[in-house]
Nucleic acid binder design. Structure first.
Lengths: 343, 343
DNA sequence: ACTAAAACATTACGCGCGTAAACATTTCAT
DNA sequence: ATGAAATGTTTACGCGCGTAATGTTTTAGT
């Protein structure tokens, strides 16, 4: 580990006894050089910890080893968890993931995409803001950079989409709720930021009608990403006026449900499925904290691992084939019913 | 915005009618060129959206505009929230923040620091893992790169430390709990990952003794970062054996408290400060979800904004003066008692 | 209006590495 | 052993920009 200090690839090539172009080739892909050559380089690598200069490398490479990961709101543990899975897989594949959060703001999202362009990423994994996104801006970006959209669906944008099968998910939870008690009322925000909300509503309506039930939708005011607060405020008002048509509420996502459960507790409305309970509450996503609500939340778990795996895998495929046009696969994964005590 | 496409600074200099070295100077610092020159450049900038190549810029600049932000566990909303504040301030100051999460693993933390070296960052904001950190590795990093530590204290490492004044915080919450009911038992993990836990325990003991009370500490098993689960499991066992010395529990952090409250609910133990309640529970941090527990959690809010502001500001000061040695300021901020219903 | 100072233009080199071309050597099947 | 294929070496250029040196123009102070 001692010896002279290595300043650049030239010097490293010298001490390893291999020519610089071959060393360069090695760093680009170790398996592209003869085994004996690789051994000599790796031996030198142990003696002289040298690593190529990223900036010089990326300047000349048409595309880098960078992978951009963009999520709409990192303070939401759901996205933090997905991001963690994505990061891991990128690193394992020898890429360098760069994580960005739009913090719920369009200007941020646009700025991130602009910066990302300069970083010449091999590809980008993007969960867009949704309704508040600058759709044209994103589309233009996707035209230049291989991008896989996940979680948040945008029409006709990106090289592929990976997300949840909301129709299936809603069918499952609505089915469960109807079998085990009164049919659910659907609880959501009036102007949901996330486009998934629309698919979930549609899924709810379809599932209810398939069972011969009448869909009932309750929509509460509020903008932004403070879903718990919005759910809390909305539910507080509704619980006073008794505006829920049945004793069962299906929330558009877990964070709204967290707010609702908190509001019910404050009002002394007992949530759960026991005989002494007045309200059943179900959520969607299996948020990391859903199992610690009081009572623990019945919800639908999204398949984090599958979504992460397939997003990354699909992106790599697109990157390799350079297929920016052509068919645009949409992969939808089923959810898993997590029966806890709230419904 | 139309016209020919600009490929590099040379061409941009041409269409703006300014020499390339001057244009380069402009991008380095717009105020370093004459007003009329700046106007001409900015006019061209509007017509030809050009932005300098990051990699070429950073290759020759000794230090870049990159700021590394490293947190131990991004899926913890506390760190997500702090990271958000730090990011914002870096961007406002014209820097380019790069966010990394160690995901609770030493190998990751070390790998992040190694990568960060290659990115030649102007500075780094680091919340280390703590007990599980590779202290020497971090120290070596801090010797080369201007680094401000925050939240997680490490002896004699980094150019400065910014965090919470745990002694003050504990004095305040212990004082409140003793005034309003029975003195608190301290609830924590047996082998806390975060060094703050030790300071909090010490603060608790000091605060209790100052009030003439006997400190009582309950420590539960569990490793890793699933604090809610650890709190839940530990509390479930304790509530059955009735091992809490008083009816008041002060948790080392909000996430443990979330688990404890959930466990109490499951056992039918009513949490709160009313006459019909059997247990008071207080947390620490004012976690984003603390206000939605059942009942809402009494806790101490850390001053996110102050910590973020001062971390960034201190880092910039260090970067400007290049002061890697000399005094090593430690800034501790007071917490704010948030009285809700759990205690 | 005149001069010193500030700002800009011109020219030129370097950063560290990618990569192509031409040639030399090693490997491997026959 | 022998020739083709695979792999290395040498040499040379380019990427886009930072930056120093030198000379010219503009600005500002009196």
């Amino acid at each position: 580990m001692a010896g002279r200090k290595i300043r650049n690839m030239e010097e490293f090539a010298e001490v390893s006894g291999i020519s610089r172009p071959t060393v360069s080739k090695y760093f680009h892909d170790p398996s592209s050089v003869r085994k004996s050559t690789r051994a000599r380089i790796e031996e030198a690598l142990e003696r002289y910890d040298y690593r190529p200069n990223i900036f010089a490398m990326n300047q000349n490479r048409r595309l880098t080893k960078n992978i951009g990961i963009v999520v709409p709101y990192l303070a939401d543990p759901f996205f933090a968890e997905i991001a963690r899975n994505l990061e891991r897989r990128c690193i394992d594949a020898g890429f360098f993931p760069l994580l960005f959060s739009s913090h719920g703001e369009q200007t941020q999202e646009n700025a991130i995409l602009d910066s990302l362009r300069l970083l010449k990423p091999a590809g980008v994994l993007l969960a867009a803001l949704g309704r508040t996104s600058d759709h044209d801006h994103i589309k233009r970006f996707c035209a230049d950079v291989p991008t896989v959209l996940f979680d948040s669906y945008l029409d006709n944008t990106g090289a592929a989409f990976v997300g949840s099968d909301h129709a299936q998910v809603l069918r499952m939870i609505v089915d469960y709720l109807c079998r085990s008690g009164e049919p659910p009322v659907f609880f959501e925000m009036k102007n949901p930021a996330n486009p998934n909300a629309n698919r979930r509503r549609a899924g709810y309506i379809a599932a209810m009608e398939a069972l011969g039930q009448t869909p009932e939708i309750v929509r509460v005011d509020g903008t932004g990403w403070s879903f718990e607060q919005i759910g809390f405020n909305g539910a507080s008002a509704l619980l006073e006026t008794g505006a829920f048509a049945t004793d069962t509420v299906l929330c558009s996502n877990d964070r709204l449900a967290i707010g609702l459960i908190s509001a019910a507790y404050a009002k002394g409305v007992r949530v759960g499925r026991g005989p002494d309970c007045a309200l059943r509450v179900a959520g969607m996503d299996d948020h990391p904290f859903a199992q610690f609500t009081c009572p623990p939340m019945t919800t639908i778990a999204q398949d984090y691992a599958a979504i992460a795996d397939n997003s990354v895998e699909t992106l790599f495929k697109v990157v390799e084939t350079g297929a920016l046009t052509g068919e645009r696969p949409e992969m939808l994964f089923e959810g898993r019913l997590v029966m806890r005590d709230s419904a």
